[in-house]
Simulated scan of single mutants.
Amino acid sequence: MSEHAAPRNGGPAAPGAREHAAKSVTAVRAGFVGLGQMGEPMARRLLGRDGGLVVCDVRPEAVRPFAEAGARTGADPAAVAAAADVILVMVRDDAQVREVVAAMLPAAARGTVIAIHSTIADGTAEELAARAGPYGVEIADAPVSGGFMGAHEGNLAVMLGASEAAAERCRAVFGAWAGLIVRVGPPGAGTRAKLARNLLQFVAFAAAFEAQRLAEAAGVHLRDLARVVRHSDAVTGGPGAIMIRDTTAPAPEGDPLRDILLHTRALAEKDLSLALDLAADLDVDVPLARISRARFARDLGVPHP
């Protein structure tokens, strides 16, 4: 395994110095900072890979099992940065991400990629990318979706905001725990995609609560309803099934999807109207259903004339 020959602190490379970009993909050295509920199962899937693994966490009890399994340990993020080519960061929030990255930049060799998996503000990712530039370090804005279940199963989705070169280096490491890696643009774009994805998730949760209130008032057993929802969503794809267009603009005449959208509009407006009638009869407040009924045609891309 080659030593880092590039100087620290973003200075000019010494004659004959080799940067990380010259390293074989299979020999990329991985680092992981933050071994919590998500980070621990992600990092565990990196054990035993070519290039090795170095880990760090403020809790010694989180680091100990990795050391016993053969991983190197770093006393702090700077130690990880000095020993890794691609460093994965899964800490709590923007403040912790800034603190960790600030500690790593002076210790990282030119060509290092720092991949941030924490959900942060998109402006933070852009800020850190600009701060890392003079060091010759790249920031990959790489939030994940799939929860701790996906982390344990090695089937997370990654929304990757990074340069093409940094994205390629990340794929060599992310593939150990990701089932889908989508480069969505430069740093900041990954977080913007994650926020949109989470908006869908939690608004859908709110809609599920509203549907449960209506079902409960109507005398439907909630566990029976839940079984039907999970089964049919597994077949149809759930809310994601409607995400089939490249734009949210109205679908013009001649659009090959227009007939499908018109059919969907008719079904939705009929069923939402029936649900609203039932809610009125049972005196159940369903604000999301009212909003959906009012906006569905426009949002679907086939507004009424």
Score class of each variant (00 low, 15 high):
residue 283 D to A: 05
residue 195 L to Y: 14
residue 107 A to E: 01
residue 129 A to V: 02
residue 240 G to F: 00
residue 246 D to V: 11
residue 46 L to R: 02
residue 52 G to A: 09
residue 192 R to F: 02
residue 274 L to R: 15
residue 149 M to Q: 10
residue 72 R to A: 08
residue 170 C to Y: 00
residue 81 A to W: 03
residue 263 H to C: 05
residue 36 G to N: 05
residue 202 F to R: 10
residue 131 R to H: 12
residue 152 H to N: 14
residue 198 N to I: 02
residue 14 A to H: 12
residue 21 A to I: 10
residue 58 V to C: 05
residue 13 A to P: 12
residue 39 G to S: 01
residue 240 G to S: 05
residue 104 M to W: 12
residue 90 M to V: 03
residue 20 H to Y: 11
residue 41 P to G: 05
residue 65 P to Q: 04
residue 71 A to S: 14
residue 242 I to R: 14
residue 210 E to G: 09
residue 4 H to G: 12
residue 255 D to F: 04
residue 180 L to P: 08
residue 212 Q to S: 13
residue 200 L to E: 13
residue 87 I to S: 00
residue 95 A to S: 04
residue 148 F to Q: 13
residue 68 E to L: 12
residue 276 L to H: 07
residue 255 D to C: 04
residue 159 M to Q: 09
residue 294 A to K: 15
residue 18 R to T: 14
residue 153 E to D: 11
residue 121 A to L: 03
residue 215 A to P: 11
residue 242 I to E: 00
residue 190 G to V: 01
residue 172 A to E: 02
residue 50 D to A: 15
residue 79 A to V: 02
residue 146 G to C: 09
residue 268 A to C: 07
residue 256 P to A: 10
residue 85 D to N: 10
residue 176 A to E: 12
residue 294 A to M: 15
residue 296 F to A: 15
residue 92 R to K: 12
residue 74 G to D: 07
residue 271 D to A: 13
residue 275 A to Q: 11
residue 152 H to W: 05
residue 67 A to L: 13
residue 142 A to T: 03
residue 253 E to N: 11
residue 108 A to I: 01
residue 252 P to I: 06
residue 211 A to H: 03
residue 47 L to S: 06
residue 146 G to K: 09
residue 290 R to W: 06
residue 1 M to A: 10
residue 118 S to F: 00
residue 197 R to P: 00
residue 102 A to H: 15
residue 50 D to P: 15
residue 235 V to C: 04
residue 114 I to M: 07
residue 85 D to T: 11
residue 98 R to Y: 04
residue 58 V to H: 07
residue 32 F to V: 05
residue 205 F to S: 06
residue 55 V to Q: 00
residue 279 A to V: 06
residue 262 L to K: 14
residue 50 D to M: 09
residue 261 L to S: 08
residue 167 A to V: 12
residue 130 A to M: 13
residue 199 L to I: 01
residue 101 V to D: 06
residue 33 V to I: 04
residue 215 A to S: 13
residue 152 H to C: 12
residue 253 E to P: 03
residue 303 P to W: 05
residue 97 V to C: 07
residue 138 E to V: 04
residue 37 Q to S: 13
residue 257 L to N: 10
residue 218 A to P: 05
residue 99 E to M: 09
residue 246 D to H: 14
residue 37 Q to Y: 06
residue 267 L to V: 15
residue 212 Q to E: 13
residue 152 H to K: 15
residue 64 R to G: 09
residue 28 V to Q: 11
residue 128 L to P: 08
residue 241 A to F: 01
residue 196 A to F: 05
residue 175 G to M: 08
residue 184 V to P: 09
residue 128 L to E: 00
residue 51 G to M: 00
residue 47 L to H: 06
residue 243 M to C: 11
residue 88 L to E: 03
residue 25 V to D: 14
residue 20 H to D: 09
residue 12 P to T: 08
residue 254 G to T: 13
residue 196 A to I: 10
residue 287 P to Y: 10
residue 118 S to C: 02
residue 138 E to N: 07
residue 128 L to R: 06
